[in-house]
Design a protein around this nucleic acid. Sequence first.
RNA 1: GGGUGUGUAGCUCAGUUGGUCAGAGCGCUGCGUUCACAUCGCAGAGGUCACAAGUUCGAGCCUUGUCACACCCACCA
Length: 867
Amino acid sequence: MPFKENRKLDDRINLPETEERCKKFWAENNVYAYDADRPREETFVIDTPPPTVSGSLHIGHIFSYTQTDVIARFQRMLGKTVFYPIGWDDNGLPTERRVQNYFNITCDPLLPYEPEMKFTHDEKDETPRKHVSRKNFIEACEQLTAADESVFENVFKNIGHSYDWNIKYTTIGRQSIKISQESFIDLYNKGFIKSIESPTMWDTTFQSAVAQAEIEDREIPGFFHDINFRLADSDENITIATTRPEFLPACIAIVAHPEDERYKRFFGKKAIVPLFETPVEIIPSEHAEKDKGTGIMMVCTFGDAADVAWWKASGLPLKQIVGKNGRLLDITFGEKPFVSLDSNKANLAYREIAGLETREARKVIVRLLREAGALKDEPRPITHTVKFYEKGNKPLEFVTSRQWFIRLQDKKDMLTEAGRQIKWKPQHMQTRYEEWVKGLNQDWCISRQRFFGVPFPVWYKVDDKGNADYDNPIIAEKSQLPVDPMTDVPQGYTEEQRGQANGFVGDKDVMDTWATSSLTPQIALSYGNSDKLSLPFDIRPQAHDIIRTWAFYTIAKALMHENTIPWKEILISGFILDPDRKKMSKSKGNVVTPQNLIDKYGADSVRYWAAKARLGIDTAFEENVMAQGKKLVNKIFNAGKFVFNIVEKSALNGCSDYAGYICEPTDISWQNKMSATIAQATKFLQAYDYAGALEVIEKRFWDFCDNYLEIVKKRAYADGEKSAIASLMKTIDLFLRIFAPFCPFITEEIYQTRPWDVNNRQSVHAGGWPQADVDQDDRRHEKLYDIITEITAEIRKAKTEANLSQKTGVKSVTVEAPEEILAQLRPGSIDIINVGSLEEEALILKTGSELKVTDVILAVNEENECA
RNA sequence: GGGUGUGUAGCUCAGUUGGUCAGAGCGCUGCGUUCACAUCGCAGAGGUCACAAGUUCGAGCCUUGUCACACCCACCA
């Protein structure tokens, strides 16, 4: 039901119908389409965050995305064309995990493709995970993300976000893959990308490398084990505390603090690793702390990140004992680098743990140590923090593997400088960014040993012995993109040569999802078909939890590719917190879904709630604010309807050019107020302070309903006075426009049904933000409105205190004020008489030092109230 | 250990450069309201603005310190 010519406003507010009508109207009239022909200066460019498609939309999304929409709508109403894309971040591990759980499948790249395979969701499916081929798995991902994305799209449309749905991308889409691969090739050619074999943080469940930014610490229970190491050439023992005794076979050294008197005399000597009889040197190191554990520790490859750093510095050989599946590798003592004074004994011990998961191996080692008498005391339970992949449920291991890295550590200064060229709102968020850059201690590992992602556009030559040459990759030609090296063939080769001696193999890894989402500006531009736009965009809106990932990586990529900043300003939104001020939990999020709230309060009210919160401030979830929004929406509707009723019965019905009729002093004074409010709101919105703008607009609106409307009611309604009616028309026109960015539905509904401007049925959102030129206003009666409301308040108070109706008549009111005030007041006397139900001649004006209402004598009795 | 933010009425939050800044909404209390709106109106009570010291004629606002809470990073044998 689109808006028809001369449609009348409903008698009662009906939000669901209003919302449907508006959505249809906007879609049919392309109200939010970006105009690629307009020049850059007339364009507002937004780098919209593509939400992760791995479940349902959270109320937090609605919160921050709505704040951006308010800004977008304001800019559009200013007359700009708004480049406002929308995308879905659907590639990567989170999606794979959801697909695995949802369809109860797991990917086995060795299986053949089954073209007929279908996927269904069964809540009660308790059978073991079904193994499917890589291609089938990707199809399952595509199926589920497509379904999820259409749900997301509906919610965003229901809440009234004004994206240009023609500029819609997915990070797994063909175009995104192409741009992501181009990015890889560009960085490779610039020498910013390297592939190296190195210890990498590894999730054994997903069997993939993960990046520094994807790690989180978790407190888990564990044990301290005090293990005795025999000293070589001595009967003495030293006791070493460790939480990971299963790493004994990978021990490469013992370290203690150089100033530790207990161990100073041992430096340079050798200790013997129990069970495995490996001699290791005792070395001083600043890293060791005297008062932790026993003060002396073993270094293994690799129990934790400190081991990695220490190993790199030491130059000692690498003893990798944990495999990619998280199980202990099959190694043999006596072969390099696993030296032992007694290889038979060592191998006997190791055979007990080979093939076990690290946790199981730990238990076995403890038993063996106990049997060998090398365990000083029984293990002591502790709680310690361990690194996890944020989406994983097993601790990370350090596994040596070949990975692609983007060099960032040598660009810290440039990255910091780029951050300084961007305006951060709030400002302190820039500090967070800088601290993150300062603390970078790894390059960016972008390869993931997964399936649903952007493939590396890379193959490797295979030599005559069948070994791949990883140091000299074959990089795809740009004209070939997008490519999948597992099915596409490098130039100069044929498919028959795949995997053959003197042939080639494809790189089977995919990229980290951030490697693609860090290119959202470039991807959006490619979908936008614009030759007028380039980096930097105007704004990037996002939350503060992904400063270290999305913001950081986007800045890094823009710097490396275009040598510029990606956006001029970055607006950091806060979080929605549980009422107990913790981060909103999933369980809660499932109950309070955005759609439920839209259904309950209406889209405009949910938007009102979002727009009330300041940038960067975390806010507790408070449904009351939505109820408040609903009251406002209702009030806007009723005020509109009331004014329409007045206009329809008046001589100004159907009149478009009403402004010239506004001539009465009180009306002119009120319009001064409106101008001031518009000026304030405009200033706030230009500074992206949508909450500040909403506050002043809302305040003025309630003032309008409570005071001005009451003041002019009689003149407009009973007297049919044109000045009052025209002033009401103008006021409604102005409020509809300045509320439009916040409450797009109700404002459009009323705007389209005005009994004036009937030939102008453009969307209220298509432009027309009011100009507040206060300097051109007629300021002769500037103070009058405030004087009237002040006196009115005193009269109302007198009635309230007498427990009487506001309709009670007034016999006399005495106002004392300086002559200057009285001069302003006199032309508006009639309005005080009207609004206060004063009898004729009841208003007595006296000269005094300041404005004061001294006597209010009510008509019902002779009670005299002193104000 | 390093960094950032927050602490203002019972609750959720505003308080822009120090001078009507002690506020709003909700909640609470009282009263009113047939005629735009009970999704209403009018009014009221409620706060040593975390604490302490300092700067100033004057401090929620600036400085220093303390406490509490939250988030990020580092360390985690």
